[in-house]
């Protein structure tokens, strides 16, 4: 049993690997949307507009949350549980702040006369940024689970896999947002 299980383990934990495949899959969805965006932009009736300032603040929150997540992961591995708990809490709050700022951004857009159905360019922004936001919300739900776990028991189990999976996903939504922001700024 032991030898077989050892053999099955390989270099990467299956759950971590599954996450990487899931990331590839999510990327394909955004590849579909952004390529549709490019195709549409080269056709008639495209409106060019400025992104709301709130998106810059949300970007700052997202980057900050990635840093706190990274630190939280380190503290967990060094078994500094109180520090880990507070860093996870900060990450969680920054995640909520990000989503709130995205919503503020869309409210500003709508106020400035750019509601979703104004032009296909605006519609794309709503869908692409909105779907990214949905993925962040998914991450926040997972963070809540991590958060609850960090506080519920006295964290006797030092299995780092769930924390690693959480951190990888969180950095992924961060990178995805930065990519999307650059994409939306460069191709208007």
């Amino acid at each position: 049993m032991r030898t077989v299980a050892m053999e099955q383990r390989k270099k990467i934990h299956p759950h971590k690997f599954t996450l990487w495949v899931a990331i590839a899959s999510i990327l394909m969805m955004f590849a579909g949307l952004t390529s549709a965006y490019i195709v549409k932009r080269n056709q008639a009736n495209w409106l060019s507009f400025e992104l709301p300032i709130a998106f810059w603040y949300s970007t700052a929150a997202m980057i900050a949350s990635s840093i706190t997540m990274w630190q939280a992961q380190r503290k967990f591995k060094n078994r500094e549980i109180p520090a880990y708990r507070s860093l996870i809490t900060v990450t969680f709050i920054l995640g909520l702040l990000f989503v709130a700022l995205q919503v503020v951004g869309f409210t500003i857009l709508a106020k400035n006369g750019l509601p979703m159905n104004k032009n296909v360019a605006v519609s794309f922004l709503y869908v692409i940024v909105g779907l990214h936001g949905a993925h962040v919300v998914g991450g926040i739900v997972a963070l809540m689970v991590t958060f609850a776990k960090a506080f519920s028991k006295s964290v006797r189990n030092y299995n780092s896999v769930p924390v690693d999976v959480m951190a990888t996903y969180w950095h992924f939504v961060d990178f995805l947002w930065i990519y999307l922001l650059i994409f939306l700024l460069a191709i208007r």
């Binding site: 899959s25 999510i26 394909m28 969805m29 955004f30 590849a31 579909g32 949307l33 549709a36 979703m116 159905n117 296909v120 519609s123 709503y126 869908v127 779907l131």
Partner: peptide, 19 residues
């Protein structure tokens, strides 16, 4: 996922007035 993105855009067109 690419079909999903198409289906989402279609749902928006149907129900939220996008084009």
């Amino acid at each position: 996922p690419v079909l999903l993105s198409g289906a989402i855009l279609l749902l928006f067109d149907r129900n939220l007035g996008t084009s």
